[in-house]
Design a protein around this nucleic acid. Structure first.
Lengths: 302, 302
DNA sequence: TAGCGGCCACAACGTCCGGTTGTGCGGCGG
DNA sequence: CCGCCGCACAACCGGACGTTGTGGCCGCTA
């Protein structure tokens, strides 16, 4: 493939071979192999050089694309790569939507989106330089001074139930209403800020929240909810935008107070990446609103 | 690379190996080689499977891009490919601009742009199915019935001279004014419709047009013109849009009549490609205007 | 038209890459 | 604590790819 482009640029097999630091025969063989696998002739061989056939001309831009894609792939893991590498907590949550908006607003900023295990891993990755920014809920008092944090988005937590659930037809509920109900949160991994969040929520309002269990996929989880009248689960409001059509599932807002998941953007202050400032500017800052609830440790990350 | 994506999708080296129909050890070795060449670790090996590292997550979308690019490259030369393959006569001329406009208007239509030797080669390529359409000046009376032709663009021919040329300061000239002047057309290959066009132009107005000579690049040609007070050449009007800033060169319109190069779109009538109709609709049809001149054989291709 | 030179294809050979079989090691679960 | 599962390491083997050597075709030139 690289030989093909080299021959096109050089115009002759011989010169292409020199450029590639191999012999002309090797180039001939490579092109012959490529032509055999593609099933078409790419060059017409003349007495003084090679000219592209029609198929070769059509193939050329795609071949260049392929080489560029390889370049980008290699560059994406090179230290000092210029793409902004951002950690988001869950691709189906608010930060992913926010990042999508940033990408549409600033398409020239290259983004690499990754998902780390938890906030501690994110801070460690920031410190080591393997990521540039992270959307997480963090305890600001535990951050070292060289880590910046801005609370950028509060995502309301809603109750999701099947149609047979006792609360299915309630227009809204208060956290206190949920005492005695079984709140099922499969796939929440102990030790993450998610688990800490729901632990704090359970403790604050005397709820019984099951934060253990295997990780379900989205569809099995929704199917199970739809068929189990005793099950309810918490979901972020933004899942509404990306989940498939709810098969009879009910979204019930929680009020007085509304638990919100406090997404913060965190970054290393001495990171020189120019797009980092653009991202912060694009996000703005959230002032905690009245009537909402977050854990104490999260509220500190104003 | 393909192994990397397979491991990501399968979650385990073993299953990925099964998908690829090779052994687990081979996959291990491939991944190890890839990690060595990239200089980063892509997976964390656990007791039950492999999970992506941060670098692996960042690398993944680029790896998928690479595989998609390969797919497209192979598809571009496959018989029955869905991209519209169009032959244009010179990338710097009107058809290229027209095609660019079509691409902006209908970005979902994939285009492969190629350039063939002359109109005869284009007709042959159309017949054999290796291209879908062609922008050329053709003698319609010589076309077989299964080839469609629509005259879609008339590109006025202008005179290009250096500042020292006797006609440099003329606001416009007539073809008759050019008798006795040396018209220099290097790079026009005998046997093409370009050569036929200028031969007819010379015969019609008694001009001396040198349609031979080696092919110059654009920059050397413009440099030579700028420094030679006895040289003039014909260029299409659309070159204005793409050529570098003329270093003192004069563009002189030709009038009474204005020679125009009659670009036609030609295609094979039984070509089922849906985008072909879209392209024709986008182009419209040119009605020959009064005060212009084309060779008889070209005018026939209304 | 005959000679020559440039350029690519074909053939034979060697090396290295990449695949396979066989085995070892570490972590998780019973 | 033992067994199993999943990946890594080692040795071996075949084929692919690069090399040297050579042949043939075309275009240029005398």
């Amino acid at each position: 493939m690289r030989s093909f482009v080299a021959v096109v640029d050089a115009g002759r097999f011989q010169d292409a071979a020199d450029d590639l630091s191999i012999t002309q025969q090797a180039v001939s063989k490579r092109i012959a192999t490529l032509e055999r696998t593609l099933g078409v002739r790419l060059f017409t061989r003349t007495a003084r050089g090679a000219r592209l056939t029609v198929d070769g001309q059509a193939f050329l831009p795609h071949a260049r694309d392929l080489l560029r894609a390889e370049e980008r792939a290699i560059a994406s893991v090179r230290p000092g790569h210029r793409a902004l590498r951002v950690d988001v907590i869950g691709r189906r949550l608010a930060p992913a939507s926010v990042l999508g908006g940033f990408h549409r607003a600033r398409p020239e900023v290259e983004l690499d989106v990754v998902t780390l295990f938890d906030a501690d891993a994110a801070v460690e990755a920031l410190t080591s330089g393997s990521i540039d920014a992270s959307f997480r809920a963090v305890d600001r008092s535990r951050l070292s001074a060289d880590i910046g944090a801005v609370r950028v988005f509060d995502e309301p937590v809603q109750l999701l139930t099947g149609p047979g659930h006792p609360l299915a037809d309630a227009p809204s509920v208060t956290p206190a209403d949920l005492a005695g109900h079984r709140i099922w949160m499969p796939g929440i991994v102990a030790g993450t800020e998610w688990a800490a969040y729901y632990d704090a929520l359970a403790a604050a309002f005397g709820l019984g929240i099951e934060v253990t269990g295997p990780d379900f996929g989205t569809d099995p989880l929704l199917d199970t909810l739809a068929g189990s009248p005793s099950l309810a689960t918490f979901v972020g409001e933004l899942t509404r935008l990306v989940w498939p059509a709810d098969q009879g599932l009910r979204r019930i807002s929680v009020q007085d107070p509304t638990p919100v998941y406090p997404h913060s953007l965190i970054w290393r202050r001495d990171n020189p990446h120019a797009a980092l400032g653009d991202l912060r500017d694009h996000l703005g800052t959230v002032r905690p609103r009245a009537g909402t609830w977050t854990p104490d440790w999260a509220s500190a990350a104003a």
